[in-house]
Structures are given as C-alpha cells and as structure tokens.
C-alpha cells in the first residue's frame, strides 16, 4: 500500500482517537468512546502491517500473538480492586515499548550509528529517556499499590542528592550521545540504564496514597515517549496520539490532584525534594 493511502488512513484513525477520548469523558458515552478508540488502534495496526516497508512478518506475528494473550489473560483475571495497579503495569509495558522503538530507530537506514541528524538523535534520546522512566516508575507504582513494597518504603537519606546526581549524569550522557557520534554505542547503554534508575528514584519516595496521581502522570509520560518515538521514526500517528495522551494525561493528573487536595508540583518533584511526605 503506498504511503499516501497509509497517511490518509492515519488521519482517519487520529480523528477516531480524538472522538473516542472525547466520549470517554462523559459517563453515558464512555463505553462507546473506548470502543471507537480500540477500533482506531486496530485499523492503525492493520494499515501499518500493509505498508511496503514491512518485509518480514514472522517475529511481528509471534510477538503480537504472545502480547495479546498475556494482555487479555491478565486483563480478565485482575480483581476490580486491583485495577489501578494493573493500569500501572500496562503503562510500564507501553513505556518500555517506546524505549525499544527509540533504540531500534538508531539503526534506521541513513547509515545507522552516526548517520542520523541531530534532531533525530535528540528525539531518540527523549523516547529512550521518557520510556525508561515510565517503565521503572510504573513498576514501582505497581509494587507500592499492590503492597509488595511498603507504602512509605524506599526513601533513604541523601535520596535528593542521588536523584539529582543521576539526573545530571543522564543529561551529560544524552548530550554526549547527540554531539559525539563515535560515542553513541556506549552512551546509549548508559542513557538506558540511568533512565531506568531515575524512574525508580523518582517514584520510590512518594507515598502509596499518592500513587493514583503518579500513575496518571506516568501515563502522560508514556504518551510523550510515544510522541518522541514518532518524531524519531517520522510517523505522524505516533506524534498525534502520543501528544494527545501526553496533554490529556497532564490535565487529568491536575484534576485528580485537586480532587485529592494535593498540588501537582508536590507530586511531580517529591523525588527531588528532601521529604517525600509519605502519607
């Protein structure tokens, strides 16, 4: 199928995502809204599979079947009370997927390592960074909500210092990776590792009661990661849907904060301030 037709179908699916998200916001239409957005996802997947770029279906088929089975079984089995932590796990799963897409984009035609434009490199670094933080952050949120990890556990002396140090190292490695093509190989490993560590450090000092807000925030991050991955591989539907989720997630996080009498900045930065105020 030629790229123009695929682009046209992407426009239709983007409209369906927008309409679906709109309908999810009101109780009477929410079920239909979710259905519309799931059909849009199905269309986007099918039309991508028909793209001329796709030459090998074997691994895609295997991975899709396995992923569908695991997703469906866990979604069926989870107790109603366990929903928020399940959302956290799925969200983390989306985050690691965006990290991997960003990583794989390093091997785009155009010369692989060193052959990519600075702009593409920046978006690759962003998708790896945000995806990694989303992944481990979501896992910690899941562990706290399901009480595998104590609600207040994890905050240690000097936490703030260590978090800032990791953040600084991450920034340095990212910059080196973008401006020195020869260093891309080792630096990409460092960025992946540091972003995974940062995800843990950012969420671990936050109290269990704040976890729903944190999951909503991480959900927004996973949208941003998908958006960055979209820039890395020049794909409009990833950019549109990712940005939609990113923006909607931030607003929703803010609304949830207000409903729980918390300030957004408090939840956002408690990993970097002295006390987590675990409640």
């Amino acid at each position: 199928m030629n790229p123009e037709i695929i682009g046209g179908v992407y426009i239709v699916t983007a409209a369906m995502f927008i309409y679906g998200l709109k309908r999810l916001g009101s109780p009477a239409t929410a079920v239909g809204g979710n259905l519309i957005s799931s059909i849009a996802m199905l269309i986007a997947v099918i039309v991508t599979m028909l793209s001329l770029e796709i030459v090998d279906y074997r691994w895609i088929a295997v991975a899709m079947v396995l992923g569908s089975i695991i997703g469906a079984v866990t979604a069926r089995r989870v107790e109603m009370t366990g929903m928020p932590e399940m959302v956290a796990l799925f969200n983390g799963s989306g985050g690691i997927a965006s990290l991997l897409v960003g990583w794989a984009a390093l091997y785009s035609p155009g010369g692989g390592f060193g052959g990519l434009s600075a702009f593409t490199m920046v978006t690759i670094v962003l998708s790896i960074l945000i995806g990694g933080v989303t992944f481990t952050g979501s896992l910690v949120a899941w562990a706290k909500l399901s009480e595998r990890l104590g609600s207040g556990a994890g905050a240690f002396a000097g936490q703030q210092f260590v978090s800032l140090l990791v953040l600084a190292a991450l920034v340095v490695c990212s910059v080196v990776m973008v401006i020195l093509p020869g260093w891309t190989g080792p630096m990409v490993s460092a960025v992946i590792l540091l972003s995974l560590v940062l995800g843990v450090l950012a969420v671990i000092p936050i109290g269990g009661a704040d976890m729903p807000v944190v999951i909503s925030l991480l959900n927004s991050y996973s949208g941003l990661a998908a958006c960055a991955a979209g820039f890395a591989i020049n794909n409009t539907i990833l950019i549109v849907a990712g940005a939609l989720v990113g923006a909607a997630g931030i607003i929703l996080t803010n609304i949830m904060c207000r409903a729980m009498n918390r300030s957004l900045s408090h939840v956002l930065f408690s990993g970097f301030t002295a006390t987590g105020a675990a409640t």
């Binding site: 995502f17 679906g20 998200l21 999810l24 929410a30 809204g33 979710n34 957005s37 799931s38 996802m41 986007a44 997947v45 991508t48 599979m49 793209s51 770029e53 796709i54 090998d56 691994w59 895609i60 991975a63 959302v87 799925f90 969200n91 989306g94 997927a97 965006s98 991997l100 897409v101 794989a104 984009a105 959900n219 996973s222 949208g223 990661a225 998908a226 991955a229 979209g230 890395a232 591989i233 794909n235 539907i237 990833l238 849907a241 990712g242 939609l244 989720v245 909607a248 997630g249 929703l252």
Partner: peptide
C-alpha cells in the same frame, strides 16, 4: 483508556521489527 491509546507506539514497533 488514555493509557491504551499510548500503546500506539505499537505502530513504531511494527515498523522497527
């Protein structure tokens, strides 16, 4: 529901794979 939409990264994953 928004989280499910962020799974759109699957399109990128299919292209990479």
């Amino acid at each position: 529901g928004a989280n499910a939409i962020s799974g759109i990264t699957i399109v990128g994953a299919i292209l990479a794979a």
